[in-house]
Design a protein around this nucleic acid. Structure first.
Length: 337
DNA sequence: AAACTAGTCAACCGCTCGGTT
DNA sequence: TAACCGAGCGGTTGACTAGTT
């Protein structure tokens, strides 16, 4: 039982690499290549495991690596690909020249996950938390829905409070995440300055509970399942929020065609939801119960909205998707505002 | 100024897979 | 066909740093 270790653990050095070790490894590989990792440390005069050398080379020393911050298009690519392939970091990294799977994984775990959570999006399923709950709620009898709301609040309380307080304050100027500015103002800007001042933890939680419970009970059945699309037709390999939620069809943004994931440098691969010809009727007056409250009405009065609706679509990515960020019911928002 | 906390990221670990013998 | 081996992958850990109390 057990595997033969790749090296004698007692005789190898571990931990951080020194500059001298880096130089030894780099110069050896420059001369001899990376054919046999087990022999490399021995031949290069390093007290390291071959595996450790490979890792050091592939994750840090390789000359074609990019070091530093991830760009906005890179972040978009990661999020989009993650929504389709999950934690296949090497696959995702392959679409990002100069980035390693370790880089991508670290960036996802430390930054992107939090960004999505903070926006009320489940980083595992890439669905808004509220929609996840709504999906579950459709399978429950009404009395159970209240319990679901209670339980969900326990799970998502932090995200919701964050969303309902800090994020809204951020909106006073504009909301920028992942380099994408969302020029959508809060539903009622006049109350914005007092939001934090008036914030009271317990009271707010009670309001959230009530609003969430009501919102879920009023959540209409999905139009379709999470029907992904390829070339405009549903396919089984990806999620497509705007298919399920009419509001997003009109003004929202969705993940682009899953078949086009190459980082071709042509800017955003996010695409807008055109609604497949459905047009502006997607958000109707009667839909005020749960979704689309923000866009409905804003369309009439907000210059910023026009900029989104009009020529600024390229500026909104997954992080700038107001339909996701603000996908809270009127009931819920009214309790808070 | 010191102690504590949270965030970041390089490195390690164990496992799987594919090629070779 | 089975055993072995090298390489790669994804999850996890821990050292370091910056920010906060």
């Amino acid at each position: 039982m057990g595997r033969i270790p790749c090296c004698e653990k007692d005789s190898v050095k571990r931990g951080q690499w020194t500059l001298e070790e880096d130089n030894k490894l780099s110069s050896y590989i420059a001369q001899h290549g990376t054919r046999n990792w087990r022999l490399i440390p021995k031949n290069a005069g390093l007290q390291r495991c071959g595996k450790s050398c490979r890792l050091r080379w592939t994750n840090y020393l390789r000359p074609d690596l990019k070091h530093g911050e991830f760009s906005e298009p890179e972040e978009q690519t990661i999020v989009k690909l993650h929504s389709v392939v999950g934690n296949r970091w090497s696959l995702i990294a392959a679409q990002l020249p100069g980035r390693t799977d370790n880089d991508v994984k670290n960036h996802w775990n430390t930054k992107l996950k939090k960004k999505l959570s903070g926006m009320g999006i489940d980083p595992v399923t890439h669905k808004p938390f509220s929609h996840l709950m709504a999906e579950i709620a459709t399978t429950l009898a009404p009395p159970q829905v209240a319990h679901l709301a209670e339980a969900a609040l326990g799970c998502f309380k932090d995200e919701m409070l964050h969303l309902l307080t800090k994020k809204r304050i951020d909106f006073s100027s504009s909301y920028t995440v992942g380099g994408y500015t969302t020029p959508v103002p809060p539903p009622n800007p006049s109350v914005e300055p007092t939001l934090l001042e008036e914030f009271n933890g317990e009271e707010t939680i009670q309001k959230i509970k009530m609003g969430l419970s009501r919102a879920i009970m009023r959540e209409p059945s999905p139009v379709k399942g999470w029907g992904p699309m390829t070339n405009g037709e549903p396919d089984d390999n990806s999620f497509l929020m705007c298919e399920m939620y009419p509001m997003t069809i009109d003004q929202g943004y969705r993940y682009g065609d899953p078949s086009v994931y190459a980082n071709d440098g042509e800017g955003s691969t996010w695409s807008t939801c055109t609604g497949g010809g459905g047009g502006s009727g997607a958000v109707e007056e009667h839909d005020t119960g749960s979704r689309g409250h923000l866009l409905k009405g804003k369309e009439d009065e907000s210059e910023e909205f026009e900029s989104v609706k009009g020529g600024n679509k390229e500026d909104a990515g997954v992080f700038g998707s107001e339909c996701v960020l603000w996908d809270l019911s009127d009931d819920l928002m009214n309790h808070i505002v």
